[in-house]
Design a protein around this nucleic acid. Structure first.
Lengths: 227, 227
DNA sequence: ACGCTCAAAATAACTTGGTTATGTAATTCT
DNA sequence: AGAATTACATAACCAAGTTATTTTGAGCGT
């Protein structure tokens, strides 16, 4: 059977197949042939629709950022920005653990590591794809609300977001890399107190920061229930 | 010419060649054939000495941890543990920037990402190779000195080290992934204030934390001079 | 000193997987 | 309806990981 009926949703099917393979068998299982056969298409569609495996991976990462953006959008805006931010951190961690390889892909590392010096797709991806910006904007917005609330010292929301993103991202990658296996509950022992310490460092009162983090954890749980 | 004289230093030569290729052309350039020819040996030595490319990469990462351990050992133990820790963070960042792909390899991400589900080498590498433990011990020791100094709230040095490592590692990976290009000087604008915030969150006075970080930066500079 | 044995390294073959070239059916335009 | 174009399939090509085979030289017993 050659020259099958038009699909038109071939790109989405490829991206979905790639994400599935990524989740189930890791990036080494994502090859032109496997993705094509998993989506019931031929190898060529990868090249005609995307240009090659790196570009497909780039599209997969973009899909991941869109998912992250949607997940952040589902975190309600409450009157407690620190609770909102902690709920977002937990949300980001949840997505990362649901598909660690996808998370790797999204955050530059494995992109730089696995595929060629594709300066074009590389820059678009690692730096600031629109989908990434959209997800990141939720974080920056919450930082703005926090600065505006007067609970912390006045400062640039972008700088605060960069610091926050650093430690949350660092925590997530190390947890995924099994660096915290010695801890019973790494979130409660490492991530949460780190968030509290950071909030206190920003100028918040310790009790209030702790309460906000507990509120953030509850907020996160309530979102999970609502699925 | 076949069957050359015994080398005996073949493993080291291979690891060095792999590190060089990694630094200059990235991981995609590290292939059995390229490593072999760069070290003047044949493809087979990769398999006879290591078992395959993944195991060679594992040895390369291990070499990286040994280097990191040596670099940490060169950071003097002063009476200011926060300065020591900040100097270590800057040292880690320096090594990461000198060979970003090696850093990727060392910290699990690209290991999980690039190579097969090699559960054996994977575990040995990502979790806790002896070389990693040795490097990490320098951080934990400084955290212990900090707790002991009474400048911060009493707590487990391991937990503190995990938090510290999270944000430093997160910062480094994001910087390597070009996430901070918008900042003029990401170290001064993001890493240093993040360290100060964290110290304050741990219980230190803000002025003192700032002074320690400046001292740490000077300490780091003085180490660089002494090379 | 000579030849045997064995380890280590080389050469060559095999296999997998990214990529390109070519063919063919279906849709669209005139 | 017929031509042009598009979207997909088949098949060939080439690079790179891995395995198999051969060759070399060092150490050792005689």
């Amino acid at each position: 059977m050659a020259g099958r009926a038009r699909l038109d949703d071939a790109p989405e099917r490829l991206v979905r197949a790639a994400i599935g393979l990524l989740a189930e068998q890791g990036p080494s299982a994502v090859k032109a042939r496997t993705v094509a056969s998993a989506s019931g298409l031929s190898t060529m569609v990868v090249y005609s629709h995307f240009g090659g495996i790196p570009e497909l991976m780039s599209a997969v990462a973009d899909h991941g950022f869109k998912e992250l953006g949607r997940a952040f959008a589902q975190v309600p805006v409450t009157e407690d920005p620190i609770a909102d931010l902690f709920a977002m951190a937990l949300t980001c961690r949840r997505l990362a653990r649901e598909n660690p390889h996808l998370y790797d892909l999204m955050f530059g590392l494995s992109t730089r590591a696995t595929y060629r010096p594709l300066s074009d797709a590389d820059l678009r991806l690692s730096g600031h794809s629109p989908a990434f910006r959209e997800a990141h904007a939720h974080v920056t917005a919450a930082c703005e609300r926090l600065v505006h609330s007067g609970r912390v010292e006045r400062q640039e929301p972008e700088v605060m977001a960069a610091q926050l993103w650093s430690f949350v991202h660092g925590y997530i990658t190390l947890e995924l890399a099994e660096h915290f296996v010695e801890f019973d509950d790494a979130v409660m022992q490492v991530l949460l107190p780190m968030g509290v310490n950071f909030s206190v460092g920003l100028g918040d009162k310790r009790e209030r920061a702790e309460a906000s983090h507990e509120a953030g954890a509850r907020l996160y749980d309530s979102i999970l229930q609502g699925e």
